[in-house]
Design a protein around this nucleic acid. Structure first.
Lengths: 339, 339
DNA sequence: TGCGGGGCTTGCAACGTTGCAAGGAACGCT
DNA sequence: AGCGTTCCTTGCAACGTTGCAAGCCCCGCA
């Protein structure tokens, strides 16, 4: 049963308001009074009631990070970055996992700070699209992450997927590979990630004068290891298998790697592999994984700053911030370093 | 600016209390009134204010899951399980990451439901130990996960680490390995995990009549891939390197695997590897990882149930629930399946 | 002595909700 | 007609906090 302001006030022989003034470090408190109140606070182990405070102030100091899956390493790593950025601004992050369930996503995003208790939302949608987000009734600020939504009229942070995918593909072309496959295409109109990356992949092939072979572009339902493993098995079953694969994320690449190695083939000698996301797993696989590295810290920083500026009343039109990325070359395309 | 009960009441021409009755589905409301209020609710898009509700009811419907690191796959996978269990009981989970920072851990656990807004806490401590938790002033119920704390006088869920480590070690012995190393020992008195697993490792060796070689027991500061890679490098530098290694978690094992393979050695032919945790990464590495699999779903279920029973006023003495585990044999000890 | 002013403290109200118990209307019974 | 009962609705207060503005006291100055 924690102490309230009133109990502290009685013990210190002052009014509730004065205790509040001490707790909140208002200057207009006599030193002697302050000391007496402080003693009472300490003796009773007073902790302010955050709920009452939030009700009164209209701010909770919480921001929600809504993600499809926490056990996807990319999201886990991004979460760390967001928590760090928010903490340095005095905010606490609440993480919520939707599993890409449209109902859960809608619930979280559409309801405002009334249903939940947070001041703002950083949201990486999987199921919800442009249309869904067009007119949110809620007034809680939202920042979107990822390529899922393009025209939501909301603040939005994403990397240039077409260019990044092109960079990855060009790297394989530069290595002299001829039959370059892609894993992770998504026909579903609403899944922008796969489509944008396929677009970048195709342009890179075109630009190099290489033929785009439809059967080398493998769709997957999700971006998990198992999807990559299965897609790779299909590619290996082709009469003329690829000599390189661009996987649309690292998990797909790790799944594909597993399949390749289990068939006794070598990476990169027989098949070169490029992933996307630069998760830690890919730095410790054998061979380690060449990948596109999005600047997760930057993404987190932009997201938090954008959100906080909205909380401060920034009324400027929705921003669309690009995030940096680069290509990290490792063993899966160039072989082990010679030492 | 979302609607309040009062605004709805004015629109419907009833009292605030009646609107509340409709919102909360109290039976004593005339059908006609209910319909009229419902219409007003819909028109204004009313959403109850969770903060006010919590203040009034004394319950937020939130439970916090406090973990050292979200980007450690074991915790990410556990988080998924906890979220699922809590959701099925109508609770929402708030995830908080401490990075093992004692200050943050203390802050979260010591403060009650006042400082934060949750009804209870599921806590996997890294830095805090028995003494720290002995007399918490807060009345918020806590369930502890893991072996960090043994005598906290708090509800507690853990697996039998000694027995599990013994099982892993015995598996290596049964394969005929003679020089079995261990990675992940922790001399720091407060880090129970490493100590308990070392204890199980030693007993298994003793029981098999094998010598315990101190230099084969490698301490690590953390349980990350990089720690495993470094420790393995030390082991390989020994005049007489091991022919098997029991790693105290899968990340250590994956780091060790990376080091072994990069030296051109084979797993399991030259060195057999066993991990702990059964994270998904270990199912897709090459070779896939033999490991101890804690029943994460069971851990989550017990934790949530225990916590909710405390919230319901259960006053029974602190429980110490064991969680199940088993040994999953994969390629890192027995080689690829022949197909 | 009267008055202005600064330094410090306080009471009141409100944030939006719900528990409590009372209020009121309508009905049936004697 | 009077009374009890049932059914429905309502006002008040409170959860713990803080904004606002008033209030108090004491000091200094004329």
């Amino acid at each position: 049963m924690p102490a309230t302001l009133r109990e502290v006030a009685e013990r210190a022989g002052v009014s509730v308001r004065t205790v509040s003034n001490v707790v909140n470090d208002f200057p207009q408190v006599a030193a002697e009074t302050r000391a007496r109140v402080q003693r009472a606070l300490d003796e009773l182990g007073y902790q302010p009631n955050a709920v009452a405070r939030t009700l009164r102030r209209g701010r909770s100091g919480l921001i929600a990070l809504v993600l499809p899956e926490l056990d996807v390493p990319y999201f886990a790593e991004l979460t760390r970055a967001v928590i760090e950025q928010a903490a340095s601004a005095g905010y606490t992050v609440v993480v919520d996992q939707t599993d890409g369930d449209p109902v859960r996503e809608r619930e979280l995003v559409m309801r405002g700070n009334r249903a939940a208790m947070f001041d703002g939302l950083i949201f990486s949608p999987l199921a919800l699209g442009d249309a869904d987000l067009r007119d949110r009734p809620s007034s809680t600020p939202v920042v979107l992450l990822g390529e899922r939504v393009v025209q939501g009229g909301l603040d939005h942070i994403m990397i240039d997927n077409v260019a990044a995918a092109g960079l990855a593909t060009r790297h394989l072309i530069d290595l002299g590979r001829q039959r370059i496959a892609a894993i992770g295409d998504q026909s579903d109109e609403s899944r922008k990630t796969g489509q944008l990356r396929t677009q970048g992949y195709r342009s890179a092939l075109h630009a190099a004068g290489l033929e785009v072979v439809p059967e080398l572009i493998r769709p997957t339902e999700f971006f998990h290891r198992s999807d990559g493993a299965a897609a790779m098995a299909e590619l290996l079953a082709l009469p003329d298998p690829p000599d390189a694969v661009f996987c649309y994320n690292d998990l797909l690449a790790l799944g594909a790697l597993r399949t390749i190695l289990s068939r006794g083939l070598r990476v990169p000698e027989d098949i070169a592999l490029v992933g996307f996301d630069d998760i830690e797993d890919g730095r410790y696989s054998t061979p380690s994984l060449t990948t596109i590295r999005p600047d997760k810290t930057q993404i987190a920083k932009h997201a938090v700053q954008l959100l906080l500026s909205r909380l401060d009343g920034d009324q400027s039109p929705p921003a669309e911030l690009p995030a940096d990325y680069d290509l990290v070359i490792r063993e899966s395309t160039t072989g082990p370093a010679t030492h």
